[in-house]
Amino acid sequence: MIDYKALIWYIENLEGDKAKEIIDSFIEQKPTRDEGLEIMKACQRGTEKVGVLYERGEYFVSDLLVAGALLEEIKEKLQTIIGEDINSFKSGRITIGSVVGEELEQGEVVLAKIVQTAGFIIIRPDTRVS
């Protein structure tokens, strides 16, 4: 029985080793693809929470990178179970740029690139999501 709550909490709190232990024991149980997708969604919820904590000013860019790297490691572990669809899982969404319609400043462009390398999707304030 997988403790999804604990898994999400470990990822949110960047306890990578603990999160990977749960994934390893999950893999040992020879799960189905659907079960794999389910646990991957939980992992993604964990990194999304990291993104929210970053936006709230509680986490640093370096935390996003740690979370992104952790999700990549987990994706590698689960790839044989889930297959190519695993690549559709992103770390989360981050809003960069505070004023609608303004161009990103040079620093923000660099920041956006770093955040993207951590697997997060960049959202601009002037981007309308239907």
Partner: peptide, 9 residues
């Protein structure tokens, strides 16, 4: 200073 990494780091 830009908030990318911790001041303690």
């Amino acid at each position: 200073e830009k908030g990318f990494i911790p001041h303690v780091f």
